[in-house]
Design a protein around this nucleic acid. Structure first.
Lengths: 209, 209
DNA sequence: CTTAACTGCATCAATTATGTTGCAGTTAAT
DNA sequence: ATTAACTGCAACATAATTGATGCAGTTAAG
């Protein structure tokens, strides 16, 4: 929210309920069309358009709130997975399951998150830190390649989750999707029978492939 | 474009030039803000707003044209890579290099493409067919796992390219990025020293991880 | 129960985006 | 060189969106 430092008393229960409904409706509507009007959002939320404006100063404010929602849920997911203490593979798997659901349910809001900033639209830096911690622990446990690039690993992990959530079929359970992601992350799609390591042995100059 | 079946004579050279500049400007502007107005686009293109409207009936029409541009370039990339005849690994690598550039230069337009449709905003079905052909050839050549899911493989490949293009650094050359993508696609990020195959041995139920 | 908060509705204001038209000047194509 | 096409500019029209306000009725909270 845009308000400087929230000095106000807590909102009444029905107001909080309105906010929740508006956020959920905004997510639904913006998935279908990011350019949808706030009136569309209000209609989907079952509230009057003025209520949307009362709760969110502007469209930007609403966007900020959606990003905040994603950040909050991501934080919960990280905490739930116990990234700092659980065995890396277990934590990675748990995190994958929950984050998959988060990306399925909050796809449009997720896209509003700016992974390169820490402002109102930025990603929670502690979330990135926790994710990196988990990946580092995975590497140190011998799970990931010792020389793996941290940013690339993080990006790939999130990209795989994104992809899995995008083409998640009704027939596939969350755990199956998570399994897919983990397997692709760790061993890729290559045939283990084939000696791919030698085929890919020229990191200095990719032209040699 | 929206026009039903283009019965008109070819456009004059300067008009074609305007169209090209507008499309490039639209790409630039929409990367920064998908909600930007057509006036912003016109300004960036160095033409009058009315010219934009003359060349593109509506905002939707402009979007269609951007999608068409992506489809055209993708087609060129596939042809250039000789996906049907070149050795799979070579073709895959060539395609990766060119598609990486395409995604870097036309990021916003790429996002307008609907991979699940074949309409005006849909992806060129022949492009998907060619990509699938290449992946099938790769699988048959023993490069990919024999039981790999076609849709998943295609999605992952594009997701990796997307990720690589998103965090492509100035310091990294196109071929280096392509190498990264290929390696991750084929062997993942897992440590080959570690017996990951056995860790990941329960495809039926991911919970057993 | 009392009160303050919240909502819906109607209304108004201001801005912005979209799209069209006419005209004068310029430019590509034959 | 002639002509048709194209562009910029100004002007106009319209619609959509955003945002604010007042008021009456309802509801949560003490």
């Amino acid at each position: 929210m845009q308000s400087s430092f929230e000095p106000e008393r807590p909102l009444r229960a029905d107001a909080q309920h309105s906010i929740a409904r508006i956020l959920e409706a905004a997510e639904k509507v913006f998935v279908a069309d990011p350019r949808a009007s706030l009136e569309d959002v209000a209609r989907a939320a079952g509230v009057a358009r003025t209520t949307v404006h009362r709760r969110f100063v502007s469209r930007d404010d609403l966007h900020d709130a959606l990003v905040a929602t994603v950040n909050r849920r991501l934080r919960e997911a990280l905490d739930k997975a116990e990234v700092a203490t659980a065995p890396p593979l277990v934590a990675l798997y748990q995190l994958t399951v929950v984050t998959l659901e988060l990306k399925v349910d909050w796809r449009a809001s997720w896209q509003l998150v700016d992974f390169d900033s820490t402002g109102a639209r930025g990603i929670d830096p502690s979330a990135i830190a926790d994710l990196d911690l988990l990946l580092r622990r995975s590497r140190d446990a011998g799970l990931l390649q010792p020389d793996v690039d941290a940013e690339w690993a993080r990006g790939i992990y999130l990209a795989l989750i994104h992809e899995a959530s995008a083409r998640r079929r009704a027939s596939e359970s969350a755990s199956q999707s998570a399994y897919r992601v983990m397997k692709t992350l760790l061993v890729g799609l290559g045939n283990p029978e084939h000696d791919l390591e030698s085929l890919l042995s020229r990191p200095a100059n990719g032209r040699d492939l």
